[in-house]
Design a protein around this nucleic acid. Structure first.
Length: 775
DNA sequence: GGCAACGTAACT
DNA sequence: AGTTACGTTGCC
């Protein structure tokens, strides 16, 4: 029952030339040619089509009915031409078809008949990702069967022949991108980016100023800090080297990355000591695990190895975690770990029914596992995330305005991005020489200390990272699924080597973890599967800060989704519209979103999404965000599907809006005053078009802002004069008025305001022209 | 490089 | 026989 190997591949070529219809792809060269290659072809065979595992969360889901591919389906009223599966149903672990047989013995996989793990491996079908041959490892007559098992894809390896021949598996790797690597958070990309980031340790050295901030940092406190910028906070240009690190996110050249990674893997004596006796859940030690083929020690975990279905899932995550932390200490999120989905999902299965975990241990002895494609990690994480996330998202979106997965292609919004794409060293030449909001670019970036009123919940303007050439493949992402979390809850106690459980309960650990920084958490995530899961608890990640993270990768996105933060800081990143839209739709509980310094092209994703719970929106210094864009932001969701009748302002629940540095005028303020009834804190600093009339609008009778505003920042608004203070007297709830560095506001006027208000509300001058309610 | 389209493998 | 959807193609 061999795969239908019609053997007509040769015919195809000739035939295809003749039969090709105009504007149509060659009829048969593609898959069929590939698939129909005789299976006895000794090498360079065609890769076999894989099929659904039917077990993974994606496979068992129903079609979303909303994605691009669903809409194409006849059942959803489409033409049915695309013939693609629902993007929410992209199989996590596609398996070899049942018809697949060993190229040598012509028999199917026989692992089910065996007990012994190693034997299972020897008798299961393995498809070489390079030559595409499918064999039973046992049927190979190679003594040193040093095939390299691909942990991410069931029944996939680099066969000993290819491995010995030193062939590159890249082509094959790319081929199954579709299965795993395109998933948000793909390690392939991450590695790439890491590579491009350069050596992590170097990066750390390069950026000593990026101190990690303590976790559980009360975000609100932070952004409410007084507007004093320490010298270290002064905006500064990024180091040239960083600027060069625009990533090509999706290159597949990961080998070197691995090399880098391996070098980076530090043997942290502290942690290994601390953890040396902690047993991982699933497995025993594997001496082979300790070294990769180059004899390098994979990472510090030493004996603390575990393996999931396709091997040790955590470690790569961890590596990534540590890496991302190392690379960007300010990033308190590992994101690396994030994707545990591919194979770790309890059900997501390696192909041949039962191959799963067993597949691992056996193979490993014979075929050393080399972490060529750590996507498995991603997948596993995704798997975890999916259940919760999708469910939540869907539940939430069901009640709100649900967006189709596919974000509409950018149109006019693309333009700004393109502008960024033309340079290496200087990311935004157009900005350099251009004024933004009337403030010279230089001024925005190099504030003389005397006139640096910034602060007060303001992200320091800095060079905006260059968006990736083409925004990271969110479209591709759409084809992939954030996989659901495993069904089994995390264990309550840590399993130890001796079979017992650690005395400390999970919740106690959680409290301890609560004292760790995100960076430290990432280290902990390397310890074992249990810790990995525990450390991903969203309570530990209520705020994820990617501020100034040069490149937002799919891996990060999946990591974010997995953690479901309430607060997300993407300021001064190169996040794209698609990425942001994708994120927002999957973070239904998001309360704080910081996008300062991002491009409008990206921020415009908010126009098509609904963030019902969003309380804080920071869009300061968003280039291109003017009145027209504000209108788009504040108008009802552009979701015209049936049932989407909510025509309320998308940001209606926002209480804290940060618009510093924008070229907005009264037009926007009028909208704000009407559409944002909950607005309490408004940052309009550095808005040079704001004037007394603007304040008048905000505080006019009949507006909601009049009563809701408690805190307004008008610092460095040079058109605001003393007169504005009179308007503020109408505000019933006002507690703080920041008029610092407003040239036309006098201290005398402030004192007069205090005097006049003293009857009802005592105010004081906290600083020059910074009025604060006294009590 | 992204995407629509399609042949046909794989499955029901 | 009918349906689903993988993997490839060529156009843009």
């Amino acid at each position: 029952m061999a795969l239908s190997l019609s053997g007509d591949d040769e015919e195809y070529d000739s035939e295809s030339e003749q039969q090709r219809a105009a504007n149509r792809p060659k009829p048969k060269v593609g898959t069929s040619a590939a698939i129909k290659l005789p299976s006895n072809r000794s090498s360079s065979g065609a890769r076999r089509r894989r099929t659904r595992c039917r077990k993974c969360e994606a496979c068992v889901r129903t079609e979303c009915g909303e994605c691009h591919f669903c809409k194409d389906m006849k059942k959803f009223g489409g033409p049915g031409r695309m013939k693609q599966s629902c993007i929410m149903r992209q199989c996590i672990a596609p398996v070899l078809p049942h018809t697949a047989v060993c190229v040598v013995c012509k028999e199917a996989g026989k692992e089910d008949t065996l007990e012994e793990e190693e034997e299972k491996f020897n008798f299961m079908l393995m498809e070489c990702s390079i030559c595409n041959e499918i064999v039973h490892p046992n049927c190979l007559k190679v003594n040193d069967a040093s095939g390299v098992v691909n942990d991410e894809l069931p029944n996939c390896w680099e066969c000993p022949k290819c491995n010995h021949a030193g062939k590159s598996g890249k082509v094959s790797i790319n081929m199954w991108f579709k299965y795993a690597s395109n998933l948000p958070g793909s390690l392939l990309r991450e590695q790439k980016s890491l590579k491009e980031e350069g050596d992590a340790s170097t990066a750390v050295k390069r950026r000593p100023d990026r101190e990690e901030t303590p976790r559980y940092r009360p975000e609100e406190t932070l952004h409410r800090q007084p507007p004093l910028l320490s010298p270290s906070n002064l905006p500064r240009p990024r180091p040239e080297d960083k600027l060069r690190k625009k990533r090509k996110l999706f290159d597949d050249d990961e080998e070197e990355d691995l090399g880098v990674r391996k070098k980076e893997k530090s043997d942290d004596p502290y942690y290994s000591k601390l953890l040396h006796h902690i047993k991982t859940e699933e497995e025993d030690e594997d001496p082979y695990e300790e070294e990769d083929e180059e004899g390098r020690v994979p990472h510090f975990r030493g004996g603390v190895e575990r393996r999931g279905r396709f091997g040790d899932p955590e470690d790569e995550a961890d590596e990534r975690d540590s890496r991302s932390s190392l690379l960007n200490p300010s990033v308190k999120t590992p994101f690396g770990d994030s994707d545990q989905s591919l194979c770790s999902s309890p059900q997501a299965g390696p192909s041949s029914e039962g191959g799963s975990e067993t597949q691992e241990k056996g193979p490993r002895r014979k075929a050393r596992r080399k972490r060529r494609l750590p996507n498995r990690e991603l997948s596993r994480e995704l798997s975890k995330a999916l259940n919760q996330e999708i469910q939540k998202t869907e539940d939430c979106l069901a009640n709100e305005n649900r967006q189709p997965l596919k974000v509409e292609p950018q149109t006019e919004n693309e333009e700004p991005q393109r502008l960024f794409r033309n340079e290496l060293g200087d990311q935004r030449p157009h900005l350099k020489n251009k004024e933004m909001n009337g403030t010279p670019w230089e001024l925005r970036h190099f504030y003389p200390s005397q006139i640096t009123p910034l602060g007060f919940n303001r992200s320091t303007p800095t060079n905006r990272p260059v968006p990736p050439h083409s925004p990271p493949k969110c479209v591709q992402m759409e084809r992939h699924v954030i996989r659901p979390p495993p069904i089994s809850p995390p264990p309550d106690r840590l399993p130890l080597k001796d079979g017992k459980s650690h005395v400390i309960q999970r919740e106690v650990w959680m409290k301890i973890f609560g004292y760790l920084t995100h960076q430290e958490l990432c280290v902990c995530m390397r310890v074992c599967k249990t810790w990995n899961r525990w450390c991903c608890d969203k309570r530990l990640w209520t705020m994820i800060d990617l501020n100034r993270c040069t490149s937002i990768t799919p891996l990060m996105l999946s990591g974010i989704i997995r953690r479901q933060p309430g607060s997300l800081d993407l300021s001064w990143t190169n996040i794209s519209k698609k990425q942001l839209g994708w994120l927002i739709n999957r973070l239904p509980g998001l309360r704080v979103l910081k996008l300062s310094g991002c491009s409008w092209a990206a921020v415009s994703a908010l126009c098509t999404s609904s963030c019902p719970l969003l309380r804080t929106l920071d869009v300061q210094w968003v280039e291109g965000l003017k009145d027209a864009q504000m209108r788009d932001l504040l108008s009802p969701p552009t979701d015209n599907r049936p049932g989407q009748l909510d025509n309320r302002c998308k940001l209606r629940n926002v209480e804290d809006l940060r618009l510093a540095g924008l070229d907005i005028t009264d037009t926007s303020l009028r909208l704000i005053s009407r559409q944002m009834p909950s607005l309490s804190m408004l940052d309009l600093s550095y808005c040079n078009h704001i004037n007394d009339q603007s304040v008048n609008l905000l505080t006019a009778a009949g507006t909601t802002t009049r009563d809701s505003l408690t805190d307004i920042n008008l610092s460095v608004c040079n058109r605001v004069t003393d007169h504005s203070l009179n308007f503020f007297k109408r505000c019933g709830s006002i507690c703080q008025i920041d008029l610092r560095f407003c040239k036309q506001v006098t201290r005398t006027a402030c004192e007069r305001f205090i005097a006049e208000m003293s009857v009802s509300v005592p105010f004081r001058l906290k600083e020059d022209k910074l009025l604060q309610k006294a009590s």
